[in-house]
Each structure stands twice: as C-alpha cells, then as structure tokens.
Design a protein around this nucleic acid. Structure first.
Lengths: 220, 220
DNA sequence: CAGTTTTGTGCAGTCACTGCAAAAAGACAG
DNA sequence: CTGTCTTTTTGCAGTGACTGCACAAAACTG
C-alpha cells in the first residue's frame, strides 16, 4: 500500500529501513510504520522541491500512494511531518533527566539529555530535509512549536522530579525553557556555520554561555 | 461602521478610547483604528466566552458589525487577534535597545526594554482577556509565536547594533532568545501566582536567574 | 461638485481538516 | 482454507479558514 521507492514488489518486506526497531512486530505494525515513513518522506521531499505552500495533502498522498484521508490518520496537520522528535523521544525525556547523576546540576542534566535527543533526531532519515525546510520557511516553525513545547514539558517534569520540586516551580520552568531555547539557537547557528562544524559543539557552546550568566564575551 | 459599544451614534467620534494617540489623524484613520479594535475586542470576548474553537470568523464579524471579508483586511488569521504586541512595539524595540546606556550589558538592556514592552502591552484594553485565552488554550500559542519571533528579531537587531556585532552572532542571538523566553516564563508564572504579585517582579526574577547562570537556588 | 484614493463588501473558489460508515486486509482459531 | 474479529484504509459529505478579484461606498483633495 505504501511503497514509494520500489514500484512493483508484490508483498515482500521492505528492503532498506533505517533506524531503531526495524522489522519487529507483525505485518500490521510494519506496514503502519512504512506508511507513516512514506508519507513523511514524500511530504518533506515535496516541500523541499516546490515549497510547502505549493504542495497539497493530495499531492503528498499521491506521491506516497495512499488515500488523502489516510494522511490524517497519521498526522494531525500537513506540517506535522516536519517535527523532528520521535514521540518516544518526548516521552523518554523526563525519565532520562531523572536518571542523570544526583550531583549534576539541572542545567547540565538538560544539556546532556537534549544532546542525546538531538543525536537521535539527526539519525532519522528525514532530519536534514526537515531542517532545511524549516530554515528556508521560518513561518512554518509555528506549526512545529507545539512539539518543542511538549519536549519542554517533559524536560521540566524530569527536572522537577529530580530536584524534588514542582513542575510549576519558576526556576525549574526557566531552566527547561532556556534549555530548549539554547537548542533552537544552536541548530540555527549550526545551519549557518561551516559544514564541518559539529552541532553538538554549538549546543555545548550555547549552554556554556547560559552557565556564564550570558555575560558578554571578551572582545578580541 | 464598526460601533460595538454604543448602538445608535450617527457619526460622532468614539467616546472611550484608551491608549496612546487617540483621536489623531483624519476620519479615515480613526475609523480604521476603531474597526480594528472592534474586531479585536469582539474576537477576544467571544473566545473567552465560548472557547476559540466554537467561534467562527463570521461570528466575530457579526458581533463587530462588519462584513466577514473585512476581518482579513485587518488580521491574517483568526487567532492573530491574540497577539499582545502593537506593531510599533516590535518596530521600536531595536531602537530602544540601542539607546540604552553604553555601559549596560546586553542582558540588562533586553530586560529593561522588554519590561517597557510588557507595560505597554498590559495597558492595552484586551491584554487581560488575551492572556487568559492563551493560558486556557495553550495550543493557540503557536498561532501567536510568530509575533514573539518578530519581537526577538528586533531585539537581536538592537543588541547587535549596540554591541557592534552582527545579528548572526551566536551570543547576541542567544541573549535575545533567552530574554524572550524569560518573558514568556515570567508571564506564565505570574498568571498562576497570587493576584497581588507584580508581573514586573516575575520578569526581574527570571532575568536575575539567567544572570546567575541558572544555578540551582539554595534549598531552605 | 468632480476626481482620486482608500476602505468595505460580495462572490467564487481552494484547501485543510473532521466525522461517519463501509470496504479492505491482517490476525487468529478451528 | 474458512469464518470471525480487529485494525487500517478509504470514500463521501460537510465545515470553515483564507484568498483574489471586481465593484460599491466612503473619505480626502482641489
């Protein structure tokens, strides 16, 4: 139902699937994953090719060979395909924070966990195109910001549990929000830097600045 | 055309208009302002009353006594009425930053300017309802985030000019982004605090934490 | 008052997104 | 293989946001 790369394969399994738990589960689950991926790949590719405005849901579905109605069984909006986080990344974040060393300060825990999250995201096969589309069409970020907020919430929850405070605590909230901000700025900076620059370095640099109270850097 | 408060006034001027340059300009400009305000007031009021999902553009326009088509001459989307910044606030921000004292560090300049921006926003007549709607329907924040990014851009531009760097400088970008984040967290914290808490205090507290490198506060 | 510019409105059309019910297809027991 | 149950896909019809366009209705100008 959802073959995009190879045209006339009867019913055998998909050959090249990257990532985590590949061929686990029954046929149903595999097909579901395949359909979702096909949809996402098609969408991101077409976005990149013609610009998001010029691409309709119908186009995406034609390219992925599914019915237009099916798209919304997988994504709640046309632009949700641009979300770089796997659902499990968001879910796991709070737990990962909690299991950081006890003596580590909250900001560093956030840094470590977001670093891992970024590595996971970058290993996805659509990451590059997602990032490019978002860079070239900043307006679209608003349709993706909800997922960043979800990640932030999970982060804050983890920090609250780890420091034995509440998720409404202003300090914990600020750390979580600032960490996400650092991540966003780091990605942006990295995108405009030399191609051999490491994203992780940009992230660490941003956190270092936060840790230094955003004091102005020494000039020359 | 756009009278909402008083029914049968022929063509005299609006009686109660709060804010800045009230009755300046010709009839055209006054009417334009009046229509915009009527639309915004109607929308925010109805949002608050029935929830944003249950309110259509048609409803808003009926309440404001204009044609549905007119709405989109003033706002590009239904939810844009929730943007708390006057267009001029965004425009002026960079200039205000530049005219801060030379010896002041960037973070403090941002703090001062955003404090002023917040005061301006709070003096608007729809501020309270806007904030309440956004608090009760966090999903809507995504439709408003673009305006926060615009404010951030203006802030970054001011900081870049003031420190004689570029708007692409990672430090300047991070300060701008973090300042907006502090503002957002401060508003949220303030909304859930005691009613006599001052928003300005929440903001200053957030900036103070940033200035201290987000170090964990001493426990009891 | 006549002419110009700006603002309001009606109309037709596109497209994202939803609910619902039926078809298609995988899972599973016998 | 067959019948049954569950999950996924699909078609259909509908709502409502938003746009372009052309024209009517102001409002400003001399």
């Amino acid at each position: 139902m959802a073959g995009s790369a190879h045209p006339a394969s009867t019913a055998t399994e998909r050959p090249a699937d990257t990532g985590v738990g590949v061929s686990s589960g029954g046929l149903r689950e595999r097909k579901k994953r395949a359909t979702r991926q096909a949809l996402q790949r098609s969408a991101v590719t077409l976005f990149r090719e013609h610009g998001p405005n010029a691409v309709t849901v119908e186009d995406i579905c034609a390219h992925a060979e599914v019915s237009p109605r099916t798209f919304f069984n997988y994504f709640t909006s046309k632009e949700e395909v641009l979300v770089p986080w796997a659902p499990e990344t968001i879910t796991n974040t709070s737990g990962r924070v909690v299991s950081r060393p006890t003596e580590e300060d909250p900001l560093s825990s956030a840094q470590a966990v977001l670093g891992e999250a970024l590595d996971t995201a970058m290993s996805g096969e659509v990451w590059r195109d997602q990032a490019l589309v978002l860079r070239d069409h900043p307006e679209l970020f608003e349709r993706v910001v909800t997922s960043f907020r979800a990640l932030e919430s999970s982060l804050v929850e983890g920090l609250a549990r780890k420091t034995d405070t509440s998720t409404e605590d202003p300090y914990v909230r600020l750390v979580g929000a600032s960490a996400i901000t650092a991540l966003r700025v780091a990605v942006r900076t990295w995108q405009e830097s030399e191609p051999d620059e490491r994203l992780r370095d940009c992230l660490d640099e941003a956190f270092e600045r936060l840790r230094h109270g955003l004091r102005p850097p020494h000039r020359r």
